[in-house]
Simulated scan of single mutants.
Amino acid sequence: MVAWYAMQFQFNSSEPIYRQVAEQIEDAIAAGGFEEGQQIPSTTEISKEFHINPATVLKGMNIAVAKNLIEKRRGLGMFVSQGARQRIVAEKKDSFFETFVVGLVKEAQNLGISESELLALIKRGYEQ
Rank of each mutant, 00 (worst) to 15 (best):
A22V: 04
A64I: 01
E36K: 13
E15Q: 10
F79S: 07
A108I: 10
K106A: 14
I63F: 14
P16A: 05
I40C: 06
N62F: 07
E98M: 10
E98K: 10
E115I: 12
I70Y: 01
K72F: 02
Q39S: 12
I88E: 04
I46T: 00
Y126D: 00
N62R: 09
L111A: 15
V89E: 06
N62Y: 08
A3G: 11
S116I: 12
V89A: 02
G112E: 09
R73E: 01
M61P: 04
G32M: 05
N110R: 13
G77L: 03
G83C: 07
E49C: 03
A90S: 13
L58C: 03
G37P: 09
Q8R: 12
G83N: 09
A28I: 00
D27R: 13
F96A: 14
E127V: 04
I40H: 06
E45C: 02
K92P: 00
Q39A: 13
F97I: 08
S14R: 07
E117S: 15
F9E: 05
A22S: 12
R87Y: 06
A120F: 14
A30N: 08
P54I: 00
E117I: 09
E49Y: 04
R87A: 12
I40Y: 07
M1R: 08
L104W: 15
G37W: 01
Y18S: 08
M1E: 07
I52G: 01
M7D: 09
S114W: 15
E45G: 01
E35M: 09
A55H: 05
L119M: 15
R85C: 07
M7S: 10
A28W: 07
S114F: 15
S81R: 08
A64F: 08
G103F: 14
K93S: 03
L58S: 05
D27Y: 11
E49I: 00
R124N: 13
G103T: 04
E115P: 14
K67S: 12
I113H: 14
A66V: 01
A66Q: 12
T99K: 15
F50G: 02
P54W: 03
P41E: 02
A6I: 01
Q86C: 11
I52R: 02
E36V: 02
Q39H: 07
Y5Q: 07
A55D: 04
V105E: 12
E45N: 06
S114L: 15
A90C: 03
K123M: 13
G32Y: 05
E71R: 02
